[in-house]
Amino acid sequence: MGFIDRLRAGLAKTRGALVERLQAVTARLRRIDETLFEELEAVLLQADVGVETTEALIEHLRRVARERRLEDPSRLIGALKERVRELLGEPVPMAENPDGPTVILVVGVNGAGKTTTIGKLAGYYRRQGKKVLLGAADTFRAAAIDQLVVWGQRAGADVIRQSEGSDPAAVAYDTVQAAKSRQADVVLIDTAGRLQNKANLMEELRKIRRVVGQQLPGAPHEVLLVLDATTGQNALQQARLFTEVAGVTGVALTKLDGTARGGVVVAIRREVGLPVKWVGVGEGMEDLQPFDPDAFVDALFETRETAP
């Protein structure tokens, strides 16, 4: 099964909670009126599209219905698909450093799939023929270090690590130094995801960024935030927080296959302004792939209606 097919299968729960329910509403209510818009709004909210984005989408549908003089409610599904595609924008590729290793700082709360995502990213870059080095800078948990080592072995990437409780910035320093000396192409640095004390998290990430930048001007070239799609609106709040404290440049959204809350993709893009750069729809090494807005929207709506 190719990734497009896995994406379509992975979005089945979200498609059922969003598109199929929207289709049921438009089939049941045969007039375009406020009752219809209220029910459409409820469906969007329950699929974790978010309050602000839902309100904007409903207002857009009202305007489309008025301007195009629509009478058939089912025609609004095509208009919604068209608008969602517009909001997601164009694909935003990962940054690359042409003068040396590309350093990617990976952030996110514990439990979001951060370490697993790093392993899958390592596998992706290794399949492209790149030399990858991993940095175990989540020194708060010994399990995180051990897990990263296992993923590094699976991907064929070396891991730079120190003992539990070591200074995360020191690990980041060692990782960049090793990457330069070993002529690595891509560096992926894991970080702790503790949210209990925002000030400590902010200072730790600032220190890592400062140390990395001192060793390699322009680094980190990406700050990738890993979000668990199953958490819905909590993922949106995490996106706002980490963007504030870490200067996030893109999102890797995991566990899309396990949730009906995939609508949060739209909210992340519209409300936080972050591009989704990777999506994960399974446990396998190849189940994390670059985000393709066209493929996502087609897989979500699947019936491929044309907008009016």
Rank of each mutant, 00 (worst) to 15 (best):
residue 108 G to F: 06
residue 108 G to K: 04
residue 153 Q to L: 07
residue 120 K to C: 02
residue 154 R to S: 08
residue 104 I to E: 09
residue 27 A to V: 08
residue 42 A to N: 15
residue 46 Q to E: 14
residue 168 P to N: 07
residue 117 T to P: 01
residue 70 L to Y: 05
residue 168 P to F: 03
residue 40 L to H: 11
residue 56 A to L: 06
residue 68 R to M: 05
residue 144 A to M: 01
residue 166 S to I: 09
residue 167 D to R: 02
residue 163 S to H: 14
residue 60 H to M: 06
residue 125 Y to T: 03
residue 161 R to I: 14
residue 161 R to T: 15
residue 104 I to L: 07
residue 129 G to S: 03
residue 47 A to F: 13
residue 59 E to T: 15
residue 147 Q to F: 08
residue 167 D to I: 03
residue 126 R to W: 04
residue 120 K to W: 14
residue 38 E to A: 15
residue 104 I to K: 12
residue 32 I to R: 04
residue 110 N to C: 01
residue 93 P to I: 10
residue 160 I to C: 02
residue 157 A to Q: 09
residue 162 Q to V: 08
residue 164 E to H: 14
residue 124 Y to V: 05
residue 150 V to W: 13
residue 174 D to C: 09
residue 59 E to M: 10
residue 111 G to D: 06
residue 106 V to D: 07
residue 105 L to K: 10
residue 108 G to N: 06
residue 160 I to T: 08
residue 28 R to Q: 07
residue 70 L to W: 03
residue 51 V to C: 08
residue 38 E to S: 13
residue 98 P to N: 03
residue 77 I to L: 13
residue 145 I to E: 03
residue 91 P to G: 01
residue 86 E to K: 11
residue 125 Y to V: 00
residue 96 E to N: 10
residue 121 L to H: 11
residue 100 G to Y: 03
residue 31 R to M: 08
residue 113 G to Q: 02
residue 104 I to D: 09
residue 153 Q to H: 13
residue 105 L to R: 09
residue 37 F to Y: 00
residue 134 L to W: 06
residue 81 K to T: 04
residue 139 T to E: 07
residue 72 D to V: 12
residue 50 G to Q: 05
residue 94 M to K: 11
residue 172 A to L: 01
